[in-house]
């Protein structure tokens, strides 16, 4: 089978339908939001390390930034062995690995 264009390989052009000036009194550029709103409407592009699960990483970031909630886009599953290790560290009943 041939290579297919991935969504990020597609090019789009802008078509103008009408023109208008925007009113500076309302809203603002995303980069210029006040810090509080910038965080509230922000995303962190995190480099996940091997070991903790995506959910654990998200919870960790949430605690660190002291915010009410956070959600990640697309679970990066932990491998069978990693999951076993991290669960055995906590010695939970569902541990897959050896519980030292």
């Amino acid at each position: 089978m041939d290579r297919i264009n991935a969504p990020w390989e597609m090019e789009r052009k802008l078509l103008i339908k009408a023109e208008e000036e925007t009113d500076a009194r309302f809203g603002c550029k995303p980069e210029e939001r006040p810090l509080k709103d910038y965080v509230r409407l922000g995303i962190v592009n995190l480099d996940k390390i091997s070991g903790p699960s995506s959910h654990e990483v998200t919870a960790w970031l949430k605690r660190l930034l002291d915010i009410s909630h956070a959600g990640h886009g697309g679970t990066l599953e932990t491998s069978f062995w990693e999951a076993g290790k991290s669960q055995s560290d906590r010695c939970s009943t569902r541990s897959f690995g050896r519980c030292d």
């Binding site: 969504p7 962190v44 970031l61 909630h69 956070a70 886009g73």
Partner: peptide, 26 residues
């Protein structure tokens, strides 16, 4: 497993819906 994991904060969690459906590269 490591790599790109976008984490949306507070009210930005609304965009996760769009992100979950987007393509991935490994």
């Amino acid at each position: 497993m490591t790599g790109v994991l976008p984490v949306a904060l507070e009210d930005a969690t609304k965009v996760v819906q769009a992100l979950l459906l987007s393509g991935k590269e490994y």
